[in-house]
Write a protein that binds this DNA or RNA. Structure first.
Lengths: 339, 339
DNA sequence: ACCGTTCCCGGAACCGTTCCCGATAACGCA
DNA sequence: TGCGTTATCGGGAACGGTTCCGGGAACGGT
């Protein structure tokens, strides 16, 4: 039942003009008479003509499409950020192609190759935790495909970046715990190679230092960004001879794991252990007890990154210098840390 | 810094052969001598040549890409289903283009237009709750672009469908509540136009009927698929002169809203009100009390739908008849309904 | 020695669109 | 009348591949 899609040539044939004329008429060129224009446009409408974007892409080497690579779309933070990307892209006439890296370097490379060969116009990306090497992104940039980082950024590449002030968020969260009287504050951090892991760890350490609390090596554990990782590290922490009286989780998944493990082990929050995390708000308020958290403007991050990207795409020359936008996180106090 | 991408013509020039020869050599045609093949392939590798998929698309009218439309990727059920879609698509050499309808007919239409003009090879879709009219999908099918429904299906179109046995899931959930001694069982259903809403409602009604419990009109409320919707409907239910002693929620979002509202209002689960829902497992076990739920094989649904779609795409002739696969849901009992 | 095959390869058309370069006719002006 | 200008359009190349058609050379068989 394949209906042949109708082309500019078909319109030209029916109107007995050349295809150049049709093309020009449809693009409202000044060198076509009003009457011819009208005839062409009318017929095009009648035949339900749509230009073939593939042909245009072949000619112009542009696709009006941007790519997004995130580790995992099931993660609320990223799905919300994608919402922000789509919002801006859609309003500026671009479509969005979404890729998941599943935190794997190989999938990220595969997506990059696809982007390059498909002539996607630009890329917004949160780097996979496994990607210590980002040559594939550099290569895209060298091919004239702009890349903008968000959330997980890298110093190894010169481009626009949008991230949240992780240092400050972690600092405030830790300081909050200290002010509520916690003395032995543990931190379950994310994977080591990720930039935000370092920023958050620094914030945590500096808050301790400011309040003259000794930093203890065994109270900082690294974990995958999964609930299971958070759970296992919590077991590990609570098994210590000197137990922490507070745990600060570096991501929403990890914090869910902490919460689950503590309940499993029979600890009360916040009395036995105070908990705070980088967390998705909608979810954390449903837990019992509701979890205090550092919330991040994920939707806005997607918007800003996309806006920067589209500016890069649409300006012919590379900008004099690249910008790093740092958005503020928000400290939301709930019962889990209120003692 | 735009590096020109290297083409078949460039290879032909450097090797002083025609571009037909290069094309054939790269496709390992039998009518090219082994020696020439080797020369071409070596140079192609050295120059880092990749064929331009856009040119091939223009020629073949195929893109090796499938589209997915879901209401909302932030919804765990759909993001997990997309995982299943990607899994199959990736392994069979296709890429995935993800669209969100945001439950809006207009966005669904826009995505369909994009799919048609971009020559996407096929579509996997969960219909938006607003879409009573699905002509845009019929039109795609008529243009030779196969469409497969999953989760939200429609009788108005003849095609492959993959759904879960909503009737049975709802029946079992309701019967479970009855067996735990609940007498006044309310149901917060999804939007009326959606097919699964009807199936679940029927299952609920039939379970009541089987156990000779009167069906009460005011105990069935329709809601959007949002937490807020669930919350508001719960207020409404608990405000009734004759309060329900159990609530069955039709989706995960709604059930989260129920849970939140009951806690807010000071009711204990399951003692005052038993709760069960169609729910995401990872999340429901974290709530307090953990919520009993009917879980759905979302990943597998994505896989099966995609597998059916790719079969349609790759077989030239339309199949004699279309298939509707009904997957089984799973009843997971937790504390919220154990009384 | 002649003819039919087979092996390799080049030329050109084609996919749908844009755009450069001309070409024609009408028109204005000296 | 002649010439430059303008308005309007057509022809064809180009984008990067695939594929049909055909053609030359080598080769084998009679």
């Amino acid at each position: 039942m394949k209906k042949v899609s109708i082309t500019i040539k078909e319109i030209a044939r029916q109107l007995d003009v050349s295809k150049s004329t049709v093309s020009r008429a449809l693009r409202d060129s000044s060198e076509i008479s009003e009457e011819t224009k009208k005839r062409v446009i009318n017929l095009a409408e009648k035949l339900n003509y749509y230009p073939n974007p593939i042909a245009i892409s072949l000619l112009k080497n542009r696709t009006q499409t941007i790519g997004v690579i995130v580790p995992d779309i099931a993660n609320r933070f990223y799905s919300s950020a994608i919402g922000g990307v789509e919002d801006i892209a859609y309003s500026r006439g671009y479509h969005t192609m979404i890729y998941q890296s599943h935190e794997l370097l190989e999938r990220e490379r595969s997506a990059s190759r696809h982007i390059a060969s498909r002539r996607v116009d630009g890329l917004v990306v949160a780097i996979s935790s496994q990607s210590t090497n980002i040559d594939h992104f550099v290569s895209l940039q060298e091919q004239g495909i702009p890349v903008v980082f968000f959330d997980r950024v890298s110093d190894a590449m010169q481009t626009h970046k949008v991230r949240v002030d992780d240092y400050k968020g972690a600092f405030e969260a830790t300081e909050h715990l200290i002010k509520r009287g916690c003395k032995r504050i543990a931190h379950i951090a994310g994977p080591k190679p990720v930039s935000i892991t370092r920023f958050r760890l620094e914030g945590y350490k500096d808050a301790l230092r400011k309040h003259n609390i000794d930093f203890q090596d065994e109270w900082v554990l690294h974990s995958e960004i999964t609930q299971q990782g958070g759970t296992e590290r919590t077991y590990q922490l609570m098994a210590l001879r000197e137990r922490p009286d507070a745990i600060f989780g570096a991501s929403d998944r990890i914090t869910m794991g902490i919460h689950w493990a503590l309940r499993q082990l029979g600890y009360r929050m916040p009395d036995d252990v105070a908990v705070i995390g980088f967390c998705d708000l909608a979810m954390s308020s449903l837990l019992d007890p509701p979890v205090s958290s550092v919330t991040q403007p994920s939707f806005e991050m997607g918007q800003q990154a996309t806006s920067l990207l589209l500016d890069l795409i649409e300006s012919k020359n590379t900008p004099v210098e690249f910008e790093t936008r740092v958005l503020q996180s928000n400290l939301v106090i709930n019962k889990s840390s209120m003692r």
